[in-house]
Amino acid sequence: MSLRTAHTQKELTLLLASIPIGLLALIGFIFWGFPPVYSFFWDTACGTIDTWLVCSGFLQRGFTSGILIGITAPIVGAYLVNRQMALIGEALAHTAFGGVAIGLFVGAAIPSLNYPLGFALIAAAVGALGMQYIAVTTDGYADIPIAIMLTGGFAVGIAVISYGVVFSATVESYLFGDILFVPFENVQLMVGLTLIVAATVALTHKQLLFITFDREAARLARINVWFYDTLLIVLTALVVVAAMQILGAILVAGMLVIPVAAAMQLTNSFNRGMLLSVLLGQVAIIGGILLSYYWNIATGAMIILVAIATYLIAVAVSR
């Protein structure tokens, strides 16, 4: 065994060993640390800028959720876009939608299990692992598992909805997004998912970058390419679930791709492009929410339209 192989395996072992401790710390922060921080920030903001846009509770939850998605989606999207895997977010969003439908159906029968985003998270994670398994064990093209999950997940959702006319209005909020009516429990879930994504990317950025641009060299360096491929797809699933109630299953892939595509027009550096894509993501989220309020347009759609506008501006500037 080479020194490089031993070093890689040691890093992987340390990463896996730190997961239980990290999860305990994460749970403690979400339930006991985040609520006072959230209240302090928005109380201070409301006292400083005494306007309804800042002091309204549902807008505070909407802004918080949107800002978190504006951070995590471009970070994960930077790896996907550079690997020409932009459509994987769409496939996982449709799979997660099937999970939401199952969760709403189960919750209608058993109120104590009424956690549709939890079911969406399970469905997206299973779908992500399923795509990876199909891609590795079959000789088909890489877009075949994406097409299967994209259509199959949506088919499951429609099939379940056909038995649940009672919760059809609730389904629409996950299908088209409803950022202004995000409950605080979902904000906490998004905080947890954001911290998981940020910590994982920070710890594995070198390996993810390596397999993004030179997979064969990564294999020669004894990096576990399958493991990091799977990790990236699971991170994508987490982001998709976090963004679903904000942008909806139909639009969620936009935040994974458009800010990154705009940043790529302005810089050739991967790291600078990732930071710039997060900045452009914030512009899309905040601008979309504000314009949605003033023009009375659906928030998720307005966020994506602002993101597209930033992309077009970036293309014009780069030329």
Rank of each mutant, 00 (worst) to 15 (best):
G130Q: 09
A86N: 02
T95G: 15
G153D: 00
G70Q: 03
A91E: 00
T64P: 03
R61P: 04
M131T: 00
D50G: 15
T44H: 06
L80F: 04
I148A: 13
G152Y: 09
A135W: 04
I67V: 08
A128E: 00
A125G: 08
A109Q: 13
L68Y: 09
T170K: 10
A169V: 14
T137K: 12
A125V: 09
G57P: 05
D43P: 01
P74W: 06
A147T: 10
A120G: 10
I67D: 08
G103C: 09
A124W: 06
I134R: 08
I102M: 14
A108Q: 04
F167G: 01
I71Q: 02
S112K: 01
T64R: 15
T72G: 12
V160S: 06
P116Q: 09
A108N: 07
G89F: 13
L113M: 02
G164D: 08
A86C: 06
A169D: 15
F154Q: 12
A124P: 06
G157T: 09
W42Y: 02
T64G: 13
L87D: 03
V166G: 10
D139A: 11
G107C: 05
Y133Q: 05
P74R: 09
V81H: 14
C46L: 14
L87F: 15
C55Y: 09
A120Q: 08
H94C: 14
P111D: 02
R61L: 01
G89H: 08
I158H: 11
I158S: 09
I148F: 12
A120R: 07
V165C: 02
R61D: 07
S39W: 14
A91Q: 11
V136D: 13
A93N: 04
L68N: 10
G164C: 12
G140R: 13
L129Y: 03
I102E: 07
M85Q: 11
N82F: 13
A73P: 00
G70S: 06
P116W: 05
I144V: 14
L53Y: 11
G57Y: 04
Y163L: 14
G107D: 01
G164P: 05
C55R: 10
A155S: 13
T51E: 02
I75V: 11
G57K: 00
S112L: 03
I67S: 03
G140H: 07
W42I: 04
C55Q: 00
A142D: 12
T72I: 14
A101N: 05
G118T: 15
L121I: 13
I161P: 10
Q60S: 03
G89I: 02
G66F: 09
F63G: 00
S56P: 00
